[in-house]
Amino acid sequence: MPILVPHARLAALLGETSVRSAAATLGELLAEVERRVGPQDWAWARKATLLVNGRAAHHLGGLRARLEPEDQVWMVLPSAGG
């Protein structure tokens, strides 16, 4: 099953650091998460870069991107350092 790894603030809200899902597309997967946290929190939590196997989701069809069982979706926020 595909896995979603949320960014830390969303993980705190969800109470877990990864979510397994049977969703067939990225859109379905995100809708599942939205249902769990509610629309208000989702409004800020979704403002993260969505990466499917390390590639920005919009290069793979956006919310329509199909998910395979081994796929990993990560949500990341800007970072910096060296």
Partner: peptide
């Protein structure tokens, strides 16, 4: 947001989740 945000809050280790997400 960088020099007053993530760097002081998380140190350079703030990069762990982003680089993992990027698969790098």
């Amino acid at each position: 947001p960088m020099t007053g945000g993530v760097l002081p809050e998380l140190g350079t280790a703030n990069l762990v989740m982003t680089t993992a997400g990027r698969n790098i």
